[in-house]
Amino acid sequence: MQWSDAIGKRHDRYAETPRIVSLVPSLTELLVDLGLAEHLVGRTGFCVHPRHVVRRLPKLGGTKGFAIEKLRALAPTHVLVNIDENRREEVAALHAFVPQVIVTHPLAVRDNLALYQLLGGIFGRDPQVEARARALAADFERESAALSAQTATLPRQKVLYLIWQQPWLSVARDTYISQMLAAAGWDSLPVESALRYPEVDLPALAGQADWLLLSSEPYPFREKHLRQLAEQLPSTRATLIDGEMVSWYGSRAIRGLAYLRRLRARLP
């Protein structure tokens, strides 16, 4: 049996013992939750969950600008990458010495189900791996249904989700983040954008938003930023939001759906 990744490349079930490098933080966490921690041999410095596992793994730099020769020395059988998070030219260089480069690109919330199936299938030589993938899918469906039921009872709201300041950057509606927000009944601003992470006119868009959401990543917005914005935009309601729960896919998406359900319930 074969499974297709985000660029349509077909992958067989790996019959030997894998050596996996993950260059995507959320995928590192997912691999651990699939029971593949012992097969991880490298990660980025941003792969921080779960700490007790990743702290023993060699760090290869960032998701962009990773140390390719250090990665080569690890002799991986598989490297996991993402279209948004890794540079195309750096990923292309991996094909010269990595037997299997697995490309991911979840955009819709339900793309997580295909992701569980993809990795559970490729690394399912141990039946427990596929069993864990099925369990994650069941947990995802449960939390997704609970969020959908809640969303159906609430009015939709417009939100401005900020990921950076100086300049102020938000998210376009074709991003995974925006799709997660939409699942909670929050339609992100701007409505249209040629860029996936556009610079925005904060006062103008804040005036259109029911809520201003300040993410904890990649820019670490804190309480002091809420106080500053309260002075600049006194009529705008703003709150902090856990960026990992909204932008990390994989197994974190399950907790993300539950987190959004709780957050939406307390924000009228």
Rank of each mutant, 00 (worst) to 15 (best):
Q2H: 14
A6C: 08
R10I: 09
H11E: 10
Y14G: 04
A15N: 01
A15Q: 12
I20E: 10
I20A: 06
V21C: 06
V24H: 08
L27K: 02
T28A: 02
L31K: 04
V32T: 12
G35W: 06
G35P: 11
L36D: 13
L40F: 13
G45V: 14
V48P: 02
P50D: 11
P50G: 10
R51I: 00
V53K: 10
R56Y: 01
P58M: 14
P58H: 14
E69A: 06
K70N: 11
L74A: 10
A75N: 15
T77R: 06
T77M: 01
H78Y: 05
L80H: 09
I83T: 15
E85C: 04
R87H: 09
R88S: 08
A93K: 15
A96C: 03
Q100R: 15
I102H: 00
I102T: 02
V103K: 00
H105G: 00
P106L: 11
L107H: 08
L107W: 00
L113K: 04
A114M: 02
Y116S: 05
L119H: 11
L119M: 14
G121K: 13
I122Y: 06
F123L: 15
G124H: 09
G124C: 07
R125N: 13
D126V: 03
P127Y: 11
Q128D: 13
V129N: 03
R132Y: 01
R132S: 04
A133V: 07
R134W: 02
L136Q: 14
D139I: 06
E141H: 14
R142P: 03
R142E: 12
S144L: 15
A145M: 04
L147E: 09
A152S: 15
T153F: 03
V159M: 08
V159W: 10
V159F: 06
I163Q: 07
W164S: 07
Q166W: 01
W168Y: 13
S170L: 10
S170N: 11
R173W: 12
Y176D: 10
S178K: 10
Q179S: 11
M180E: 09
A182I: 05
A184I: 15
A184T: 15
G185E: 00
D187R: 14
D187Q: 15
D187M: 09
S188Y: 03
P190H: 08
P190D: 08
Y197L: 13
P198V: 13
E199G: 00
D201N: 15
D201P: 05
L202H: 03
P203Y: 01
A204E: 12
L205A: 02
A206H: 05
W211G: 05
S216K: 01
E217H: 06
P218V: 01
P218C: 04
P220V: 02
L226A: 01
L226D: 00
R227F: 02
R227M: 09
A230S: 13
A230Y: 02
S235G: 02
S235A: 13
R237V: 07
R237I: 07
A238T: 03
L240Y: 09
I241A: 08
D242C: 00
D242V: 00
D242L: 00
V246S: 00
S247M: 08
Y249L: 05
G250L: 07
R252N: 05
I254V: 06
R255D: 14
A258P: 03
A258E: 05
Y259I: 01
L260V: 08
L260I: 11
R264H: 06
R264G: 11
A265V: 07
L267S: 11
